[in-house]
Design a protein around this nucleic acid. Structure first.
Ligand SMILES: [Zn+2]
Ligand SMILES: [Zn+2]
Ligand SMILES: [Zn+2]
Ligand SMILES: [Zn+2]
Lengths: 134, 134
DNA sequence: CGGCAAGTTTACGTAAAGGGGAAGCCCATG
DNA sequence: CATGGGCTTCCCCTTTACGTAAACTTGCCG
């Protein structure tokens, strides 16, 4: 919440700018990830800089495989702890570390599977060359 | 398809053994990932060793983030190329490499985000210690 | 004033990967 | 013979992250 008169952006522009749809933005508000946005007299949503940053942050986390539900939990603890910086960040770090671990494991397993397949293939190829029967 | 008389396992046992439900196994058959299984006179499904291996392979790929749809594509090319080993493995490798790349990227991004947050936190902490006002 | 773009709400649809239950066979067992 | 498992097929339910259509305002332009 920045109180000074700053440039507001409308939902359509913002969506286009971020490469998402307006539906997505409204959806994030709908599930409480965004908090009710300011409205124009006519009822149109508008966003200021820190709200834009928040959406960008959400998108970044999403891209990294963190689910909206997990973000909700984060947002909730964030709100309940009343924006205390040093209580909230460890939570984020915890979730991040958890995901980093998962992704790391996945990478290891994928790579070893790849190796298995490559070796398997090599073995078969050798066999086929040795005795070109059948 | 192994023709020799070998031990067959029933769906319930198999599911329990693999830590999944019978529904899952039937589902894999339903979407064509498994090909129709042998049936007993009474109509009960039974599986031989290579079918079990196939399911295990599916589960392994799934665990690594490959979708059932992607596996279907693999299975399709596999079938259409009539089990020619050297035509099918490159396909698997291709998909695997693609996923390895994705996962690798994700890992990098997650780690750098983590670093950002840690640094951000450090900076704020320093600020709070310098001037304990407000 | 007519019209169009862009906004709004409400509400139903979708894809993925199964979960779970009903209704009905088959078969071993007390 | 009855009963209890375990199996079968249907078929609807669930979650996640939106898509999409309907019907309605607002704002602005000629
Ligand atoms: Zn603000
Ligand atoms: Zn997670
Ligand atoms: Zn076989
Ligand atoms: Zn994929």
């Amino acid at each position: 919440m920045t109180t000074t008169q700053e440039p507001l952006i409308q939902i359509g522009k913002l969506a286009k700018q971020l490469g998402i749809t307006t539906r997505t933005i409204r959806y994030y508000e709908e599930i409480g990830l965004m908090g009710p946005s300011k409205r124009s007299s006519g009822g149109a949503r508008s966003y200021d800089r820190d709200e834009v940053l928040r959406i960008k942050f959400i998108l970044k986390l999403k891209e990294l495989g963190i689910s909206l539900k997990e973000m909700q939990i984060l947002a909730d603890t964030f709100d309940s702890y009343n924006q205390r910086f040093d209580t909230i960040t460890p939570q984020v770090l915890e979730i991040l570390d958890l995901h980093i671990g998962k992704v790391n494991d996945k990478l290891t397993n994928l790579s070893s599977l790849r190796d298995d397949i490559v070796n398997y293939r090599r073995r078969i190829a050798a066999l086929l060359e040795e005795q070109p029967s059948a």
